[in-house]
């Protein structure tokens, strides 16, 4: 029910600027040669510059109240992209537009405001909470520092946020280790919510939780979206969860976006061979004892990605051109983009 009204809303919003736009973002990690390496290079040793394109020329947008799922396997760069969106990491190239403004070219005051509008929920709830902070302080610290609400209303504000996240406000004096995993994640969500964000990046936010707790947290995310008109970037390897929660899905492979589209579209008609294979491997309660058509081979090392289309060594439909040229992301249906040379064959 939420989802239907959501799709319409998102389409209506298309005319306006999206809440957040990722514009040709690239993130490279480079191991700079240290003194010894430089010396060795001087003496004739081969220079071993290791560059990883964690994110390679990625573009997509998130609209108000939209849930975008970002899926892919380990090493595909989804977490890095999530961190860039959350402002914890910076892109090597490309722009991030918040409400149409380039976040790299605004005043520091403005940048701080943008930063607060995008919050992040992390995979390991215990690690994401300072072990020496009582949870009341953990949740209120930033709200207080940035004066999100007047000091007189702070206590009520924090209590309201905690209650909304299902945390008993009378436990504010406890330390994170006294809570269960699910409770800790709720505290992390309350901390993010306390600064009134508009977009929440969830980086594998339910991956470390038990199944029954996972359902509680996913429901909480949905409730909060209704309450606060939140948008989510839901980074996850769990395709079942992403399918359930997302309006739109972005699929990454080895640093590149290979396909994106509305959830219904993408799951009904996956275009890219990688997406097709990936969706075919997801276990579900309905498929029992089916023999998988497993994708051959392993994910190549991001240090040495294959030429052309990164997927070609594992692709059942690989052609000559796949080894040579990177396929551009092209619209294959309305709002459905895919990066595959097969689409050019006509």
């Amino acid at each position: 029910m939420i989802s239907n009204s959501q799709t319409q809303l998102a389409t209506a919003d298309d005319q306006q600027a999206p809440l957040l736009e990722i514009d040709h973002v690239t993130r490279r990690f480079e191991r700079k040669p240290d003194f010894a390496a430089k010396l060795a290079a001087r003496l004739g040793a081969p220079i071993n510059r290791r560059t990883v394109h964690a994110v390679d020329d990625a573009s997509f947008a998130i609209h108000r109240r939209e849930v975008v799922g970002l899926v892919g396997e380990s090493g595909c760069g989804k977490s890095t992209l999530g961190r860039i969106v959350a402002g914890i990491d910076n892109p090597t190239e490309g722009r991030i537009l918040y409400n149409g403004d380039d976040v790299a070219h605004v005043s520091s005051e403005e940048a701080r405001r943008f930063q607060l509008k995008i919050q992040m929920i992390f995979q390991d709830p215990l690690d994401s909470l300072n072990p020496r902070y009582r949870i009341g302080k953990a949740v209120s610290e930033a709200a207080r520092y940035h004066k999100v609400v007047p000091e007189a209303e702070m206590t009520a504000h924090i209590e309201k946020v905690l209650l909304q996240c299902g945390v008993d406000p009378t436990t504010q004096n406890r330390f994170p280790h006294q809570f269960s995993g699910g409770q800790r994640q709720r505290i992390g969500i309350a901390r993010a919510l306390a600064v009134r964000p508009e977009l929440v990046v969830c980086d594998e936010a339910v991956a470390s939780l038990d199944v029954s707790i996972q359902a509680q947290i996913i429901n909480l995310f949905m409730d909060l979206r209704d309450e606060y008109d939140l948008a989510y970037l839901f980074v996850s390897h769990d395709i079942g969860v992403v399918r359930h929660i997302s309006d739109r899905v972005v699929v990454m492979y080895l640093g590149r976006i290979v396909e994106q589209g509305t959830t219904a579209d993408l799951f009904a008609k996956p275009n890219h061979p990688y997406t097709q294979a990936l969706l075919g491997q997801v276990p579900s309660l309905k498929r029992r004892h089916s023999s998988f058509h497993t994708i051959k081979g392993e994910i190549p090392s991001p240090l040495k990605p294959p030429s052309g289309c990164h997927f070609h060594p594992r692709c059942p439909h690989a052609m000559d051109i796949c080894k040579q040229a990177r396929p551009p992301l092209k619209e294959v249906a309305s709002g459905h983009m895919s990066a595959c040379h097969l689409n050019d064959k006509g």
């Binding site: 930063q115 610290e141 930033a142 992390g188």
Partner: peptide, 17 residues
């Protein structure tokens, strides 16, 4: 390297804090 420091940065707390 722990994520609570990432969280603090995400909350735009100054380096000093």
């Amino acid at each position: 390297g722990r994520t609570y420091v990432d969280a603090a940065r995400c909350l735009a707390l100054p380096s000093r804090m």
